[in-house]
Design a protein around this nucleic acid. Sequence first.
DNA 1: TGTACATCAGTGAACGCGCGTTCACTGATGTAC
DNA 2: TGTACATCAGTGAACGCGCGTTCACTGATGTAC
Lengths: 219, 219
Amino acid sequence: MSTAGKETPRERYRAQLRAEIKERAWEQIAAAGAPGLSLNAIAKHMGMSGPALYRYFAGRDELITELIRDAYRSLADTVRTAAASGADLAGLGHALRTWALEDPQRYFLIYGTPVPGYHAPDDVTLIASDIMDALLVAAQSAGGPATAAAAAKTPLESHLAEHRQWAGDHPASPAALRRALHFWTRLHGILSLELAGHFAGMGFDPAELYENELRHLSQ
Amino acid sequence: MSTAGKETPRERYRAQLRAEIKERAWEQIAAAGAPGLSLNAIAKHMGMSGPALYRYFAGRDELITELIRDAYRSLADTVRTAAASGADLAGLGHALRTWALEDPQRYFLIYGTPVPGYHAPDDVTLIASDIMDALLVAAQSAGGPATAAAAAKTPLESHLAEHRQWAGDHPASPAALRRALHFWTRLHGILSLELAGHFAGMGFDPAELYENELRHLSQ
DNA sequence: TGTACATCAGTGAACGCGCGTTCACTGATGTAC
DNA sequence: TGTACATCAGTGAACGCGCGTTCACTGATGTAC
């Protein structure tokens, strides 16, 4: 994709098989969580012998890392696409929720329980900050008209204005920094509890809770 | 503890060993996450043979369930103790954060990635609703003076007022229901991202974010 | 177009490992008379 | 206080399993002349 336009049949076949392996991997993760992912089981499910997969992935770790990368990429694409079509913060929130409900285990692969000792490679971290960038853009244009009350920075906004490495050189106001973080933490709070089933049987509709947070994000 | 006051030396010994097994289990979970928990490894670490542990737990599943139960109990105790000493919602929030930072993997055992197919036993669910109860009490007395603005229910509050199974017969106002849920989802959002390391290297202090949410909970 | 060689996909056997769990057994600790 | 018996903790061997991974090999596919 990046180098030459010509793709030999063999390369195409390789790419296809890699993709199918990943599909099966996602199925396994959906069924038993990430710890239950097994190369041998995937191979058997595809009608191949276990060692065959080593033609396509160096090992289990590389496969899992690739899945995490794909999950991040998919989320980044979702957010960027929504932003590109003119969505505001609430629109991004809806896109996020749809994406999360689509495949809870994919969500948890990014935001779930961390495996002690595991560190995502740098390129994955880069995608994560891409997502943050898109959020900052939307958060910046979400500000209401500049009133005196809006101009006075809250204690949190002051702190964020002074510790904004994560925002890089993005021209985001303190209020925008705050909005972007609230978007992230508040929506994640609801989504992760919902996807983990903690609201089950409580009676209310998580979507109402979610909408309510979206409504107040621009404040 | 619950039945007779007399405890034979053997019973005491049993209780002690059960406790030590659980300690080692927590150490393992802290080191490699819940999926890495192994009865044989615990036994080896205690200088015993693997099968010996079957005198104390029916199997791996029972041990894990017991750990989850303990985690819930510990959290419930923390919240109740804070409430009993007169803490308001913000006070409960601080207690929660301290508890979470104390042992992140214990936090994730409750609120982390769910294992597909696993369902916590009923008594654990009961403890969870005990926690909710304590939250509701604090959320109820967190209301400001009853103004006209506070009396008008927001859309979310209306929805919650009509779907309040989870609150049981608790005399909580719609605003209190909302506050309790916000407490839960917003603080969990920050805590889980913080504990999972998603804020690492971003520069700001998660505690500031947390404090800010606490300040706004009574609104 | 045809032959000679290199590349590559996939197999099957094998290694070593650690897991949960069962079982028959030994030896120590407690209980009853 | 002493003996006879029951209870219980812990052991070591064993079973069956699935895992990740390596290796030497076969057979098909592509490339070069």
